[in-house]
Nucleic acid binder design. Structure first.
Lengths: 215, 215, 215, 215
DNA sequence: ACCCCCGGGACCTCCCGTTTAT
DNA sequence: ATAAACGGGAGGTCCCGGGGGT
């Protein structure tokens, strides 16, 4: 089974290298030759693991999906704070994890087939979580849940998009600024006492990075 | 001078076709052959007007810059309302004008050289306009100008980004929803009476489209 | 020995699949992956039995050689009738047996090395048999043996060649028509009474098919 | 028009080189790189004239069709002699003209689409000419026209096929031998006085070669 | 001045026939 | 006998000049 292990390591190296180059150069500009070179394997090895370039893309997106699912996992706090924490986790991971970043940005390319749309997944999760917050009566009565969802999704997409060129958009302070603003309108004047705009997660890497991705 | 006229028409057709295909397929995926075919000219003509593919991209971006500058032109209202109106104009144009959409989305590609960064221009303008709004004392005292800027820029970028795949993100109602939320915290409780979240522009196309782009 | 048996069955399956695909797609177009897939074994197994692609080709040709040798075996009739019968056997086998067909058509490819040339073997046999017929005084005196050989070999090659695209060239009636014509000039006016243009073999499969190829 | 001339020369060089290599190595084995190198042009030039490899093949086949049509042109002699002459022309051209040889041998490959089947054209022509010979009462009454057609077509195909490996099959003497045999059966005992088995054409190249192919 | 035919190479993706470790 | 990895091209296409026409 030692063989299998090496195969897995090779596969991971390939996915990682692909994510890096897809993220840096875009899907079409990144060449398979560069990817396999960076992964330290031959182009034949690449083709052994991934039949085509889009298969490689799909692998990146799928892997990013795992990360996203970790971020949107269940948490034991008020839904609104969960929203804040998760968005911080997302942005932090976007800054640190090429695979998530590449997968998020490129999930549209693979759209032809049945590959998952990561932004869609994120949006769905934000929707249900916002509704949960509404049920917990943590939102001002005159705030439509849908408005909050729209704002949060657009915000995250914007940071991801802008962060692609200037990494400073992905700093914690940036998102915190936005939440500071939003909290006041959605949660009323007492917001600052109940919720932490900066998120409650540690300042370290997202848990997924530490526990799972370390192989 | 009939020659000149035809040359201009050819050039415009080229820029338009390029914008369409850059927007649809991405910069690298779009081939010059396809572009010249869609513009109805030969590939030789393309190279007569544009020395290289990036020169064509630059033309698209420059042209989009004209549109953006029209959107961020001077207006005679309170700065905060101007911000609202301009963001609506931007989003509407993004939905209607391929050139602007392509130029905005691809302004990063040409970044190597001295070509303008449209998102940067937009951000700068938002900054100074927000500061103007602050000087006009239209913002709640406990709202940092920088927070507003961040939120608005991220929001616009997010809508542009999401709108690339699902055009519904570029509908007027979407942005209106976000402004409804923001206005309450940045402009205090009287916001609804002073400002129009839906923007004050007509519901038609942005002025630039009507007056300038008609050739 | 059960192992040996399975190995032989695997080998035969491989040769059969190779013959099929070589015949259908040509030697270079047929891929080893397709061949091993059709044989129902792994590509590793293929390389265990055949060191290279040409080794596989050689096996097909060698196997076809067995078939050809059965067709040109000794028979206890007048040499001219033997010629007729054997040519019918050959054409019938060409129609029914992929291995023979592939081996015959591709025996040129392997020509570089020492692999047998099936068409050459056939030609040699026709030559000696025609001479035998001459010795038996079954040929008209004004017919050069060499002319008969040339005609028969060219005819068989032509049918094989044309049969590759349109199987009807390999029907018994086709060859019978040619022999009907030839017999009259090579065997004199009494030909029709002495020889059977349609061949004396049964109308079933060639003997080799029945006795040997049944595994 | 100097440009046009060069283009035509380039195109012809490409077709010629392709025919040579298709004939020598087979369609799939011949690489476009080798073809363009032998033609003395770049691979880009090749792609300018021929969109794909099969397009190049089609051009070869089409060009060979021209040659074939010249061979089967109208002649002012008895139909049976025309048949003899044309078959000699065909075989001689097969020996001398790579384009015809390649086109004839490969006309099956392009069969997918609507490309012409050269052997089919030849067969049709032989059929109508044989029927003409029958109408002219030059055939023995007990000879079925269809038998003659079959024999002639199979013969020509056989010589073409065998000539691919051993050029001696394409010598004039070879076909003459076959016709010597055939004439006696189809045209009766007086055949030798009426018809020339060796053909009436000069011993030089086929007319097409001389008059048309010289550019 | 404006345009297009023709040609030039540089890659890129894909896949193929192979060995090496196990 | 297998799973994994290897390189080497294959065909295709792309982005571009350069020299003639109009």
């Amino acid at each position: 089974m030692a063989k299998q292990e090496r195969a897995i390591r090779t596969r991971n190296a390939l996915v990682g290298a692909a994510a890096e180059l897809f993220d840096r150069d875009g899907f079409e500009s990144a060449s398979l030759a560069t990817i396999s070179a960076r992964a330290g394997v031959s182009s034949g090895a690449l083709h052994f693991h991934f039949a085509s370039k889009v298969a490689l893309l799909d692998a990146v997106v799928t892997e990013a999906g795992e990360r996203l699912r970790w971020i949107t996992r269940q948490r034991d706090t008020h839904a609104l704070q969960v929203l804040i924490d998760a968005s911080h986790d997302l942005v932090r991971s976007l800054a640190q994890d090429v695979v998530l970043r590449a997968g998020f940005g490129l999930s549209s390319h693979s759209g032809r087939g049945g590959v998952r749309d990561l932004r869609g997944e994120w949006q769905s999760w934000v929707e249900v979580t916002a509704e949960q917050a509404a049920r917990e009566e943590m939102l001002s009565p005159d705030v439509a849940t849908r408005d909050l969802t729209t704002a949060v999704v657009a915000m995250a997409a914007g940071l991801e998009c802008l962060g692609g060129q200037d990494r400073r958009w992905l700093e914690r302070a940036t998102l915190t600024r936005v939440w500071t603003l939003l909290l006041r309108c959605v949660a009323g004047p007492a917001a600052e006492e109940l919720f932490v705009a900066a998120g409650r997660g540690g300042s370290g890497p997202a848990p997924y990075e530490v526990s799972m991705a370390a192989r």
